[in-house]
Design a binder for these strands. Structure first.
Length: 509
RNA sequence: GCCGCGUUCGUCUAGUGGUCCAGGACGCCGGCCUCUCACGCCGGUAACACGGGUUCAAAUCCCGUACGCGGUACCA
């Protein structure tokens, strides 16, 4: 890709957009498309727009837009223009509004211009008539006959009807659509920023409906009109759009508009190879929509990092990136061309990596919800102390509530295997003595003190420190594994430790 | 069916004709560190879909086959 060959707009600013359709929850693939758009915009000091493509009134879902906005916000992908950001009526900005349903009067004139100039036509066929045509022509080799150059002559449209008849139908308000008049035997070629030169023959294209009988545009018309009016310089979208790009090219050419650069991203696939679907989410518990990630406790930084690397790589060996670092490193030329399978293990690893890099106070804050859900109400400071000693051994912030449960409530039982292995005949006596010393010491209860007292006692009794360390861990946490005992005890504090050690002496003898 | 796009370790990928008996990461296995468990560090495992070309030389270029994915709607 050549950054210098940037498509033109008035100011020469790079302008890209994420244009989701509010038909469902924000999908992880959609988030990645949004991310790549964002990265290009921020990396080039350009504009990142959000445009809601709600031209299908039947499929639009009310909560979907909220979910999309919420998902982007969760990840920190802020946009410069979009619903609620710029382009409001009277704002003196020609780019908005950013919901296609709010710009519906803009499409018909363009469709009519296309008709007037011979690049499109009116068609009056009913769905049943179209289906009849398909049924008649359907063969094994051609299971889905097109409404196109070959068949349009036999259909009911402004190309076959006498002019007066067409006019009369229009005047009567008869149901009609506007279809693109695809030329015959013509090659359509364009350069894709990630795939290079791509070409199609118009013979494989159909006369795409541009304006539906409800008066609203299809995606194809709307995206061309909007991208042009919004001065988009590069269209970055999923690979599923590649086959319709030649239709868009035909429209840009017919309208005398410069087509933005296009970049088609490889798809994200399920671990089993197919399309990442709702089924993967429901049956495999895989996070598929952004809200799944949120619910399952993933950190937004990790999700972004993970999907950024799913289909792109920096050409260096760096794997862990902050959003800012991604902005710095990203370029469309290093986007891969083949689909990538989702790998849950790697996602978890990224989550861990980002969690480890966060300050303990932040880990604490992010674990709060899960911790309180378990019924614990630790103070901010205490939770941060817990996070400090636990964060290197958890995958999710919420693990603090489970793996670290003993920080919030005394163990009600002791891990059997641990007791078996570590609780010796002298453990009770040693631990009791340790507790007494800790109680007597006038020094603070920091990790060093706790350790010194323990080692001194071990020396006196002429036993290895482990003879005391392991029972102490068992007593205070109920487990044989976890953070270093001394720092763990320091976090728990003197009172809890003494109580728990004495109780263990009693229970385990 | 047709059209398009793709195909390097199980997975994500590096690699743009020689420096590749293919490098990194996740996972897995082993070791070190160590009070345990993690973290971290060190080491190991494992791949150029297949067949033809082109070339002194191909993972890299060309053709074909296979396979995968996408598209083929008055959905986006």
């Amino acid at each position: 890709m050549s950054a210098s060959r940037s498509s033109s707009n008035a100011t020469g600013t790079t302008r890209v957009r994420f244009a989701p359709s509010p038909t469902g929850m924000l999908h992880i693939g959609g988030l990645r498309t949004a991310l790549y758009n964002y990265l290009v915009a921020r990396g080039k000091d350009g504009d990142f727009l959000l445009r809601i493509e709600d031209t299908d009134r039947a499929r639009s879902v009310a909560e979907a837009e909220k979910d999309i906005l919420g998902g982007l916000d969760w990840c920190g992908l802020d946009y410069d223009e979009g619903p609620g950001a710029g382009g409001e009526p009277g704002a003196g900005d020609s780019h908005g509004p950013y919901r296609q349903s709010e710009r519906s009067d803009r499409y018909r004139p363009v469709a009519e211009r296309l008709v007037d100039e011979g690049h499109a036509y009116y068609a009056f066929d009913t769905p049943a008539e179209i289906e009849a045509m398909r049924a008649e022509r359907r063969t094994e080799e051609n299971p889905q006959p097109k409404y196109g150059p070959r068949t349009r002559r036999a259909m009911k449209n402004s190309l076959t009807l006498p002019e007066e008849k067409t006019q009369r139908l229009l005047d009567e308000g008869a149901d009609h659509v506007v279809r693109l008049k695809v030329p015959k035997d013509t090659g359509v070629k364009f350069t894709d920023e990630v795939r290079g030169s791509v070409s199609f023959s118009t013979n494989d294209l159909d006369d795409q409906v541009l304006l539906k009988s409800d008066g609203l545009p299809t995606y194809h018309l709307a995206n061309v009109v909007d991208d042009h009016q919004m001065e988009i310089t590069c269209v970055i979208r999923g690979e599923e759009w590649l086959p319709s790009t030649p239709k868009h090219k035909l429209m840009y050419d017919a309208l005398g508009w410069q087509m933005p650069k296009v970049a088609h991203l490889p798809l994200i696939m399920s671990p089993s190879g197919g399309k990442l679907s709702k089924r993967d989410a429901e049956e495999g518990g895989l996070p598929v929509s952004v809200r799944d990630y949120r619910r399952q406790g993933y950190e937004p930084e990790a999700v972004l990092n993970f999907i950024a690397l799913l289909g792109w790589n920096p050409g260096t060996e760096q794997e862990v990136f902050s959003l800012e670092e991604l902005v710095e490193a990203f370029s469309l030329e290093r986007v891969a061309q083949s689909g990538a399978q989702f790998d849950l293990d790697k996602l978890k690893w990224f989550n861990q990596q980002h969690l480890h890099r966060l300050p303990p106070e932040e880990v604490a804050a992010r674990s709060r919800e899960a911790v309180e859900a378990e019924g614990y109400m630790p103070s901010e400071d205490y939770l941060a102390d817990v996070a400090a000693v636990m964060q290197d051994r958890i995958t999710f912030a919420g693990d603090l509530a489970t793996d670290g449960a003993f920080f919030f409530k005394a163990p009600d039982e002791y891990e059997e295997a641990g007791v078996e292995k570590r609780w010796k005949d002298d453990s009770a006596e040693l631990l009791a003595a340790y507790a007494d010393r800790l109680e007597a010491t006038s020094d603070g209860f920091d990790a060093d003190t706790v350790e010194q007292v323990l080692r001194a006692l071990a020396d006196e009794r002429d036993v290895g420190a482990g003879r005391l360390i392991h029972p102490a861990r068992l007593a205070t946490s109920g487990r044989s594994y976890g953070p270093g005992v001394f720092s763990m005890m320091a976090v728990l504090g003197r009172e809890r430790c003494l109580r728990r050690m004495r109780r263990a002496v009693e229970v385990l003898g």
